[in-house]
Simulated assay, not measured.
Amino acid sequence: MTDPLEKARQIADDVLFPAALEVDATGVIPAAHLDLLAGAGFYGMAAGQVADPPRIVEWLAGGCLATTFVWMQHHGAVRAVADSGRPDLVEQWLGPLCRGERRAGVALGALRPGPPSVRATPVDGGYRLDGISPWVTGWGMTDVLHTAAREAPRTGDARVTPRTGGAGPAVETAIWALVDAVPGATLSVRPLDLVAVNASATVEVTFDGHFVPAERVTATLPYARWGARDAAGLRMNGSFALGVAGRAIRLLGERALALPAELDACRATLDAAAPDDLPAARAAASELAMRAATTLTVAEGARSVLRGHHAQRLVREAMFLLVFGSRPLVKSALLTLVSR
């Protein structure tokens, strides 16, 4: 089989979905699931090795959201290494990451608005990281964390503004680096107990003077420019919700009524959305996932509340997607939709 989309559909329907209830109940993703995605070439998706990534994610999320969620965290590191402009990083990391021989997670909590949760301090040979990064997924299933931190403007640091050529205000810098996902004296974790996708092994990571060598830094960027870059990720996040909605709709069959058409329209809107329109489109996808899952629950009746039924799992996963990766504009749009 050479068609990536058909390959993703087959993996989702024949492997991931039949095991999804057990994964949900045990809180453990079989290593074979991630190995299968690596063997299919899907770990190289962010490097352009797989066509139609949004649909690939959608199909896999409709099979097992927990497995897809862990796998999806990997791609930020792949893209960062590929775009780093550093031959040393590309040579050492890109091939193994794309083949799934090295697997990555993300620790991006420091990029949230407000005071940074993780600070980067320049030291000889690299940076020292201090602080807490919440919501780090895939602990124990990843080799490295693509970690963000913010470097405070240095004393006396004034940057030249392009418009005037004069000295402007000091600029806070965001840095990204590949940090080994290994606990120790300067890196510790606290597991988080989630009501959905708990098998994702999501933890809170604490850095206490953790050293990162300069050769592990993938990028630096003025923090103020992070927002525009972050918005681009909303399209792919929407595929998680479309996957959950699609699975509920397929389980409903003829009882789905107008939901299949809504799913197609929601996907088309996400595909066509300009950056400013993505928050509303992403919110609509999450709202549809919840509505499709609750429709399945009502249609199936009392048995839906049994642990062995997919409806209760999909409702909890849809709830998770109402808040996962949310941004102020997404939250505002969702509040409008769910309060109608």
Rank of each mutant, 00 (worst) to 15 (best):
residue 68 T to Y: 01
residue 222 P to V: 04
residue 206 T to H: 12
residue 65 L to E: 14
residue 77 A to D: 02
residue 53 P to E: 10
residue 32 A to R: 08
residue 305 V to P: 03
residue 26 T to Y: 02
residue 207 F to Y: 14
residue 119 R to G: 00
residue 113 P to V: 15
residue 48 G to C: 06
residue 153 P to L: 04
residue 44 G to A: 00
residue 14 D to Y: 04
residue 161 T to N: 12
residue 279 P to W: 12
residue 70 V to S: 10
residue 138 G to E: 09
residue 254 E to Y: 02
residue 325 G to V: 02
residue 15 V to G: 03
residue 215 E to S: 12
residue 106 V to M: 14
residue 55 R to F: 03
residue 231 A to L: 11
residue 237 N to I: 01
residue 312 Q to P: 00
residue 123 V to A: 15
residue 169 P to K: 08
residue 151 E to T: 05
residue 98 C to L: 01
residue 324 F to Y: 15
residue 285 A to K: 03
residue 20 A to E: 06
residue 79 R to E: 13
residue 36 L to K: 11
residue 181 A to D: 12
residue 104 A to D: 09
residue 214 A to F: 05
residue 327 R to G: 07
residue 81 V to G: 03
residue 338 V to A: 04
residue 292 A to C: 09
residue 247 R to K: 15
residue 169 P to I: 03
residue 70 V to Q: 01
residue 56 I to H: 11
residue 21 L to Q: 03
residue 159 R to H: 15
residue 321 L to A: 03
residue 262 E to Q: 12
residue 169 P to V: 03
residue 164 T to C: 01
residue 291 R to T: 15
residue 145 L to D: 07
residue 98 C to T: 11
residue 321 L to W: 04
residue 336 T to Y: 07
residue 152 A to T: 06
residue 269 T to H: 11
residue 92 Q to N: 04
residue 247 R to W: 08
residue 54 P to H: 14
residue 158 A to N: 10
residue 277 D to C: 11
residue 57 V to P: 02
residue 19 A to V: 02
residue 76 G to K: 03
residue 229 R to V: 13
residue 252 L to E: 08
residue 27 G to W: 02
residue 196 A to D: 06
residue 210 H to G: 06
residue 338 V to C: 11
residue 184 G to N: 05
residue 267 R to C: 04
residue 36 L to A: 14
residue 210 H to P: 05
residue 21 L to M: 03
residue 230 D to C: 05
residue 195 V to N: 12
residue 332 S to R: 12
residue 164 T to H: 04
residue 226 W to C: 09
residue 247 R to S: 10
residue 131 G to A: 11
residue 12 A to Y: 00
residue 216 R to Q: 06
residue 309 H to T: 13
residue 128 R to D: 14
residue 156 G to N: 09
residue 329 L to Y: 04
residue 19 A to I: 00
residue 71 W to I: 10
residue 201 A to Q: 12
residue 81 V to E: 02
residue 64 C to V: 08
residue 238 G to C: 05
residue 313 R to G: 07
residue 99 R to A: 15
residue 190 R to Q: 07
residue 43 Y to P: 00
residue 281 A to Q: 10
residue 104 A to L: 08
residue 313 R to P: 01
residue 28 V to K: 15
residue 91 E to N: 09
residue 290 M to H: 15
residue 202 T to W: 04
residue 260 P to W: 00
residue 41 G to W: 06
